[in-house]
């Protein structure tokens, strides 16, 4: 995990890197996640958890990567379908924009947690 440095001490170049990731993070989020979690991350109570003001999203990065990559609790797995860099950008976006908790996750961070066992998206053939 790269992102263990508190946001306040991130040096300028890093911050710029994070911002360029955010540029892609937003469209990727709107495209892939907004149907369920809503365009503003507010979710739908009783069905899809809010990603805004969420202790889970702002919390442990490993858990967060795991859930988008593998799926869990009804959430589909995206690990086989989206590139690791895209997943990283989406996570950076929802942490920063919806939770004021910037991170600079990269494809490598996601890759490190994407082992085997992604839930099959198809049906048992």
């Amino acid at each position: 995990m790269k992102q263990l440095i508190p946001a306040t001490v991130i040096a300028v170049p890093l911050l710029m890197a994070a911002q360029s990731a955010l540029a892609d993070g937003e469209p990727l989020y709107q495209q892939n996640c907004s149907a369920c979690h809503m365009t503003d991350g507010s979710g739908i109570p009783g069905a899809f958890p809010a990603l805004a003001d969420s202790d889970f999203v702002a919390g442990n990065l490993e858990e967060l990567i795991r859930i988008v990559a593998y799926g869990r609790a009804g959430m589909p797995s995206f690990g086989d379908e989206l590139a690791s860099a895209e997943l990283a950008e989406i996570l950076n976006y929802i942490r920063d924009t919806f939770n004021d908790t910037p991170s600079d996750l990269s494809a490598t961070d996601v890759e490190a947690l994407k082992v085997t066992g992604t839930a099959k998206m198809g049906r048992e053939e």
């Binding site: 149907a35 369920c36 069905a47 799926g71 009804g74 589909p76 839930a119 099959k120 998206m121 198809g122």
Partner: peptide, 20 residues
């Protein structure tokens, strides 16, 4: 139809990882 948005289903069908 989007089955993941149908409130009584929230998904087309269950997908199990080998681990699960």
């Amino acid at each position: 139809t989007a089955w993941h948005l149908v409130p009584e289903n929230l998904g087309g069908w269950a997908s199990w990882s080998d681990e699960a």
